[in-house]
Nucleic acid binder design. Structure first.
Lengths: 215, 215
DNA sequence: TCGCTTATATTTGTCTGCGAGTATACGTCG
DNA sequence: CGACGTATACTCGCAGACAAATATAAGCGA
């Protein structure tokens, strides 16, 4: 398969797509991004911005156009996208849309080590998550409703997607919580006993040993 | 809120939770993790492993127990978790479970720059994504069914979650695709026209300018 | 007009993630 | 039994991410 993107940071894609419209200096790119609300999902890291722009230039995807100086202000370098940059942006977009790749989420990591806490502790934690999630969903819905008034749908799909994913997560958490609260989660008692006594059922203990180096 | 985790990499949490069960040397931690299938979601980066372990030690969450050498093999340092390490692992787990945080996905990034391609190009790309997604869901379902035979549910929740999320994504993509295919996506014609002629409707052009520095 | 905050614009320095390399032991197949 | 692959076990070194520092200009209230 093709070699990795010359500049892997997703901020680079955002930069490319704004600079396609008109040459800009880095700070302006950030402003435009911010004005479009892209910083909601992707807060702008100033350190990264300049690194990314420099790397894009190094790889020939951007080129410096001029370097103006107004008064004693720091020099501003204005960049323009190159043909290669335009190609890269489109190709990258295609890949992002067409190819799902497993993205490990922090919550997944949490679930995978959840056994270390007891079921009676996990339930309230999930309840809290659910509450926060619901609040966020509500806020997302309102934002979306507001933005729909002044922005074509085309520029809102990513928010719609994010909202849908949060809703799906909430649904999933609710169902797990129902099992926990109803005591219908299989092995819940063994789990609680493990947490309280520190002892695992024999068959599970075997599993936990798998992969250890034989001595 | 509390200061950032002393070792932020999620691999550190995985390391802590395996080493809680029994002291180990780094390579063994990786083996155990691999045997438990944690490397599916989180492929093990060897460079990171040793860095992470060293950092955990530096912050007093792990401590070296012994340093044995067998024959001419490289020295193996065995680490044990400290009390602070145990506390950190539990606290971190609690946070991951209880607190949702916005995690920008690559697909979301793709959607947010989708406008740069035309609708007639986007649809096939999404169709491809959907197909891959469906294949993966099928595979995930089978894996899960197999693992349920030999592993208690408790250690499979994270896979169930991942599967549910992929299903939700598939559903969402399907519905967007239906709009695109049916021609019912609002503004679809303007979008196509933009792609073909390079000209935006006046009101949208205004929006695209927002955030630019006034000259 | 003095001093305050906020916006403009970039550089620096650190820390860490991780790809790639190194070196030995073990198994096995012809 | 020797050659070749694979598992064991770590080390090195740099590119890249980002926090924080830096420096000036502009708006604004008192």
């Amino acid at each position: 398969m093709a070699k990795r993107r010359p500049v892997a940071n997703l901020l680079a894609l955002a930069v490319l797509t704004v600079v396609v419209q008109r040459p800009m200096h880095p700070y302006e790119m950030a402003s435009v991004l911010r004005a479009r609300g892209k910083d909601q999902d992707m807060p702008i890291k100033w350190g990264s911005l300049y690194t990314v722009v420099r790397n894009l230039e190094k790889h020939g995807l951007l080129e410096a156009v001029e370097s103006t100086r107004q008064g004693a202000r720091p020099e501003r370098t204005v960049y323009r996208v190159t043909d290669a940059g335009r190609v890269e942006a489109e190709d990258w977009t295609r890949e992002l849309l067409s190819t799902p790749r497993p993205e490990p989420s922090a919550f997944e990591a949490g679930l995978s080590v959840m056994a270390g806490l007891g079921p009676d502790e996990v339930a309230p934690l999930l309840r809290q998550r659910l509450e926060l999630l619901e609040r966020r969903i509500e806020a997302g819905r309102e934002d979306l409703a507001r933005e729909r008034q002044e922005m074509p749908r085309l520029f809102l799909v990513e928010s719609e997607y994010a909202l849908a994913m949060r809703e799906a997560e909430a649904t999933w958490v609710r169902s797990l919580l129902a099992e926990l609260d109803g005591g219908t989660f299989p092995g819940q008692d063994a789990w609680r006993a493990y947490r309280e006594t520190g002892r695992l059922p024999a068959d599970v203990a075997d599993l936990a040993e798998r992969g250890s180096t034989s001595e």
